[in-house]
Design a binder for these strands. Structure first.
Lengths: 158, 158
DNA sequence: CGAATGTCAGGTCGACTGACATAG
DNA sequence: CCTATGTCAGTCAACCTGACATTC
């Protein structure tokens, strides 16, 4: 039943094995690293019942102060229409408050609550652990080097 | 109309500005770098009327030889059901051929045609240019260093 | 019989577009 | 009048699931 050719075919068969050409592409490596990174962060946030936009919104409010939904969305690159669902969930969970801006009654000013600050603290701890897991294969100096290279890669071109 | 506070608010308003906390996260940097990378590659492939899976399938066929759709999908991590649309398009454009495997009549053996090899050559040139654009902000030695670090990051944990 | 293959239908999720009423 | 804001409906592509007939 298992002829030599079948065995060869079977060995050549098994599992994940993209071509060398592709494997060496910096864009491919970045994609793989991003996938791993994204998975770790998503899992970390999920343990607190949050997703990435929730975290980013809370972090922006803490670091940069209250803001209307529109400016908040602009700060963290989330579309107004998508942000709507996020802030609704955060408000439902009592992590933010929304009040009409008396000086411009179109605006919903979003503010971090005490519960929101506490939740952000927990999320920050989870995120930091995810970063450590992500960078675990690298030596401390290599971790700094990677960050430096990525920052330089992103510095130019906006 | 424009009180001092309004001007301050306006300055604080404008544009993309995620919190420092987030900006420094390795996972964030990887995400941003991946976004840029993905954009460059997608644009490069689009100039030849292709998308990423098309390229990866052609590259796998060239580097690793003909294969059934299922094994092809396993090699490059594309689901059978998604691969179906891809190979159909590649066949329509004459870049691959599909023949029933006489030794196992369940299988569709996918083969690269001459036109497919030519198309892959063009795609490779576009992709290489995209890599150069991506890495342009880095010195030659930093480019090698980045690739080394990413490979090491991915080496462990499968 | 169980397992693999190609095929198809559908579902989910994130990113984006267009519209609208309200307010400036 | 034109613009900005918050809201909602709907599109689109990527990714995944489940099903089915055919073949091993």
């Amino acid at each position: 039943m298992a002829s030599p050719r079948d065995i060869v075919a079977c060995v050549a068969d098994v599992e994940y094995d993209p071509p060398q050409r592709v494997r060496r592409l910096p864009s491919w490596l970045l994609g793989q690293a991003h996938t791993r990174s994204q998975q770790l962060v998503a899992d970390a946030l999920a343990q607190e019942g949050a997703r990435r936009p929730h975290f980013v919104v809370l972090a922006s409010l803490a670091d940069q102060g209250p803001a209307s939904q529109a400016t908040l969305g602009r700060r963290v690159s989330i579309d107004r229409s998508d942000l709507h669902a996020i802030v609704a969930e955060l408000e439902r969970d009592g992590l933010i408050g929304r009040t009409r801006d008396p000086e411009d009654r179109r605006r919903n000013v979003v503010t971090l609550t005490a519960a929101g600050k506490a939740a952000l603290g927990r999320l920050n701890a989870r995120i930091d652990q995810a970063q450590r897991d992500l960078l675990a294969p690298l030596s401390p100096s290599d971790r700094r080097e990677l960050v430096r290279l990525l920052e330089q890669l992103l510095r130019t071109k906006r």
